[in-house]
Design a protein around this nucleic acid. Structure first.
Lengths: 248, 248
DNA sequence: CAAATTAGCGTAGCTGATACGCAATTAAAG
DNA sequence: CTTTAATTGCGTATCAGCTACGCTAATTTG
């Protein structure tokens, strides 16, 4: 309709290949403006606050004005996700894939810290936006020196991405609950489990609960997240290392 | 309000600790009925079709009748998730944690196959329902013989869960796109990437695309998912093995 | 039977996405 | 410099979908 290639509509949008009008009124609004405004709202008030009306208000425009630049809210969300990812970090020099992926993963983590709503956006498919693909490329670059087959590299990167996503989302949930009700929440989860977990029926879980693993007393989201994240990340990277060693 | 303990409301609901009325009209509806109906709708028509009205219709009741048993749609979703998980599988006998976790992970996968909407339900926090905790317990049981610390076991299980979730969700996205437009989709993703990925700017990704990793020609979701899943799972389990070996 | 209590439901409000068509604006064509 | 065609911004309106509220009926307890 508007794009010059036969690219899927959403991909064209993400790559900014949907404009090019000669005549007609000049747009007083760009896709980038809208995206920026939407991200601002999400950062400040959470993803739930991002409605078309709210974003339009932010721009002093009417709700329907947005639809000249974006076909649906889903498209706007896709734009937000890609824009929020910005550029991936430079990898440390050298051929150390593990150092590379560690840097990369912490980069992903940092982005999620900046935009906590990221892990909440319902995913609508594999990555297609320029920033997402740049991250993808960067991770593949880290693995370039390894003997992994190309499809294995993809598998590793995907695994890493979903891991980070899951970790961040869970941490975000906890932090949110904590904010809602600071003092009540500190041991609430642990206490609930203690009341509900029958040592007879769930012996192993009971053991963990008793060991105080869930006593997040004064859960310092920041530090805790960092530690859990690093632990899980290293497990995963150990796995990659084992696989690499097997191939070498 | 209704529960006898000081459990959080949602936890009480999940454990069926919210009933116990003596006098008054007899309920013609139970929480279980509602949950079952909702799961039926989700299985047959997708998560998007699950509205309070649609579920009520399924039960030949009015929309508002449901609210006598469930405080909000979110509560219903939580009930659905826990009910859909059913009981975790028996672990193979013996002390082989790896065999145990493999069985367990494939069990999670099987549940997601049966209820594809599961990976789409927005997560609202750590697991608290009886079935979810049973799965949790079962995975911890598999790790019982290892020298891992209790909190490390939790880390491993959480990692495994988020991995399975991510894998299933992505596979579901692809399968959905494929269904929407079978012949157009087969190579659509790959083609889009080929058009958009500049070998100069994204050299490594370009290499992968050229290698045909994304040519899913006649993507047999079933087999492909199985293979990718097993690959990623083994990577992760290799990591756990490495960590265990380090402690032993 | 009366009082108390709870289930089911009709009505209605509110929020949010988005289809549709008009009017203002502006580039290109005559 | 007009005319024309395209294109934007926006007012209006529709359509879901969640859920608060209060009424009525059923059912138990005394």
């Amino acid at each position: 309709m508007t794009e010059e290639n036969d690219l899927p509509d959403d991909v064209a949008l993400l790559w900014g290949l949907r404009d090019a009008p000669r005549r007609g009124r000049k747009p007083s609004l760009t896709t980038a403006d809208i995206t920026r405004a939407a991200i601002g709202v999400a950062d400040a008030e959470g993803l739930a606050a991002v409605s078309m009306a709210r974003v339009a208000q932010q721009l002093d425009k009417s709700t329907m004005a947005l639809y000249r630049h974006v076909r649906s809210k889903d498209e706007l969300l896709a734009l937000m996700v890609d824009a929020a990812m910005e550029e991936p970090p430079e990898l440390p020099p050298g051929r150390d894939w593990r150092a590379g992926l560690t840097t990369w993963s912490h980069g992903v983590l940092a982005v999620h810290r900046k935009h906590p709503w990221l892990s909440r956006v319902p995913i609508s498919g594999p990555p297609t936006g320029p920033h997402n693909l740049a991250w993808f490329d960067r991770a593949l670059a880290a693995l370039a020196g390894t003997p992994l087959a190309e499809d294995e590299k993809v598998g590793v990167v995907m695994g890493l991405l979903t891991f980070v996503n899951g970790e961040v989302r869970l941490a975000g949930d906890l932090a949110a609950g904590y904010q809602d009700n600071p003092e009540a929440f500190s041991r609430a989860y642990s206490n609930a489990l203690k009341r509900v977990v029958d040592p007879r029926r769930l012996p192993w879980l009971s053991k963990v609960v008793e060991a105080g693993v869930f006593d997040l007393d004064d859960l310092h989201a920041e530090e805790d997240l960092e530690a859990d994240f690093t632990f899980g990340l290293n497990i995963f990277l150990d796995g990659v290392a084992a696989h690499v060693a097997r191939l070498a």
